[in-house]
Write a protein that binds this DNA or RNA. Structure first.
Length: 365
RNA sequence: GUGGCCAUAGUGUAAUGGUUAACACAGGAGUUUGUGGUACUCCUAAUGAGGGUUCAAUUCCCUCUGGCCACC
């Protein structure tokens, strides 16, 4: 059993056990796509934020530095000098979001590299092999993330392919990890697809649960559909997932999305919003968790009104940035294009998200 | 003092004897959901003053004002 829930708590406050340590739920995973948090945030900066876990991308690391180099380097933890657990995305989403030219067949997916255009083939087995080389602690199966909108027919065929790939991932994973003691093995998660069709979500979840994964992700959401639709599909999916396994809503989201999803029984999240928005000048501040919703402010730091504002970004925040620097300084750094801006803003926005999830973990009735 | 050049959004530059005078930055309002990019979208805002030529002037001519350069 890798997941324990506190039965008396509200939400799903529990503990997920990985080979590199336990993680309290619900939690948010900062994204280190290429083995670094974008915005000049070092592994030590990140660990100082107590993130519990980070996420990296198989697709990007497969292109650079590549499978063989990663094997020789002894994995990503060593490469980036990071000691907390790492979850790796399988590359399925990047094929969907980055590659204009792609061909999906039963065997796998062929696509052109966004870096130099060279043809890359990614199969379920190859994705797992790369994730094992990375030394990932939570490995995701290769899936096809359907776009929104998506026809029923395409969504059904796609989900069934995703299930067959999941089975192959599981078999390959079992073969490659059977020599490891159970406590030294990474976890393997399946991914529910089915677009916005409730019966397809049920079908996908049921098929994956039959295969018995360590946790279940819900993919193919937050791809352009309205929030109400996302929650509707989430509510239609969760009942088909086991209570004693972690649920991961991939790529979500804004604080209000995460709050709504946690209330509906989701345990894990990842999203580019805190880091990307930080780089683009949008700062999260003044969080309030109320009974039915979350409230917060978004500061567009470039604005004139911050020119001489000596307050920290968020007066209640304890992050490095807020302890030492003012809104005026951040605005100035943003405007003069200093790299320090990105680091300080990213550290703060991550701190905001991590503190938000920490409060959800501690929320009592 | 004489001659020449210049004057267009807040700033720096375009363009034109004839529909809504363009662009960049600045200013304002937004966007970003399993990360190709310090990204993207929308909005506000201008022909120095006065006179003349002309059907029509920001454009051509004159005067003034202000600035730059050269010469004495």
């Amino acid at each position: 059993m890798s997941f324990k829930l506190d039965q008396k708590s509200i939400f799903r406050q529990g503990v997920l056990l990985t080979r590199r340590g336990h993680i309290r739920t619900p939690f948010f995973m900062p994204i280190a796509t290429k083995g670094a948090i974008k915005g000049a945030v070092s592994s030590q900066d990140l660990e100082a934020l107590d993130p519990q876990i980070a996420l990296a991308n198989t697709y990007h690391l497969l292109l650079q530095p590549g499978l063989e180099a990663m094997k020789k380097l002894g994995g990503l933890h060593k490469l980036m000098n990071f000691s907390l657990p790492i979850l790796t995305d399988s590359g399925g989403y990047q094929v969907f979001s980055l590659s204009k030219i792609r061909k999906i067949t039963e065997k796998g997916v062929t696509f052109s590299s966004h870096i130099d255009g060279q043809e890359i083939f990614l199969s379920p087995e190859k994705s797992i092999e790369m994730q094992l080389a990375i030394g990932s602690d939570i490995i995701m199966v290769l899936d096809e993330c359907t776009p929104y909108p998506c026809s029923y027919k395409y969504a059904k065929e796609s989900l069934e392919l995703t299930t067959r790939w999941a089975k192959r991932c599981k078999e390959y994973f079992a073969k490659k990890t059977k020599h490891l003691p159970k406590k030294k093995r990474p976890l393997l998660f399946g991914i529910v697809q089915g677009s916005v069709y409730k019966d397809l979500r049920e079908q996908s979840a049921t098929e994956l649960v039959d295969l018995d994964f360590d946790g279940y992700a819900i993919g193919g959401l937050a791809v352009g559909e309205p929030q109400a639709k996302m929650l509707e599909i989430l509510e239609a999916t969760i009942p088909f997932l086991p209570k004693d396994k972690p649920r991961y809503l991939m790529g979500v989201g804004k604080p209000e999305d995460i709050f709504a999803a946690v209330k509906r029984g989701v345990d894990m999240f990842d999203c580019v919003i805190p880091t990307r928005n930080a780089r683009h000048g949008s700062i999260f501040a003044n969080l309030q968790i109320l009974m039915t919703k979350v409230k917060y402010d978004t500061l567009l730091i470039k604005k004139d009104k911050f020119k001489t504002d000596q307050k920290p970004l968020d007066p209640k925040c304890t992050c490095l940035t807020c302890q030492h620097y003012s809104r005026a300084y951040l605005r100035h750094l943003y405007r003069v294009n200093e790299m320090l801006y990105a680091r300080l803003a990213t550290v703060h926005n991550l701190s905001f998200y991590l503190e938000f999830l920490k409060q959800l973990r501690e929320e009592k009735e």
